[in-house]
């Protein structure tokens, strides 16, 4: 299995506090997720549903040299993936909004996907994104929990593991963050 050189090192660097490593990491992870998601959706048509954690896990395995990385790095990787998913969704929502404003032909967008994103979360993603940024200013941990849970598809337990805090704390923060965001968005 070939892995892009350095992903493992970037992950380790990032976990050691090198913020720049994250920026280098993102595009690689992005490429891999994109490739995997595509093959997943093909399988999905054959009756398989997409499991977010499975996708990220697969990307992790493809990209990170298991023999060099620490087991803990896997949890951090989920964090990276969640951030990435958030960016993708937000970028897409922006493009879509721009197209709407520009009155461009909706037919050009694949309707199935566009519709699903519009109706599924029942949420204005851009507004959520901004509210989440606001939340991060007063409570970064809560914002990260939302990111991991909502964008990363992590369970309470997995989130606790990634952030290295207790389940109870995640649960409490998640409850409050949801209440706060819902109020902000309503």
């Amino acid at each position: 299995m070939e892995r892009p050189e350095g992903v493992t090192q970037l992950l380790v660097d990032w976990s050691n506090g090198d913020a720049a490593a994250l920026d280098k990491l993102m595009p690689v992870v992005y490429d891999e997720l994109r490739r995997l998601a595509s093959s997943y959706l093909k399988r999905e048509r054959a009756g398989h549903t997409l499991q977010p954690t499975a996708l990220v896990n697969e990307a992790y395995l493809k990209l990170v040299d298991q023999r060099k990385a620490r087991w803990q790095n896997r949890a951090q990787f989920f964090g990276v993936a969640a951030q990435l998913m958030r960016r993708i969704l937000v970028d897409h929502a922006r493009v879509r909004q721009a197209q709407k404003r520009g009155g461009s032909d909706q037919q050009q967008l694949s309707l199935s996907h566009a519709d699903r994103i519009a109706e599924k979360p029942d949420i204005d993603l851009l507004a959520l994104h901004e509210a989440l940024n606001d939340l991060a200013l007063i409570d970064e941990q809560q914002a990260r929990i939302v990111e991991l849970r909502f964008f990363g598809g992590l369970t309470i337990e997995e989130t606790a593991e990634v952030l290295e805090i207790s389940h109870a704390t995640v649960e409490r923060d998640w409850t409050l963050a949801r209440a706060w965001l819902r109020r902000e968005l309503s």
Binding site: L50, R116, K120
Partner: peptide
């Protein structure tokens, strides 16, 4: 989670 949608995107 918004994940599935993201994957399709």
């Amino acid at each position: 989670p918004a994940y599935e949608v993201a994957a399709e995107l």
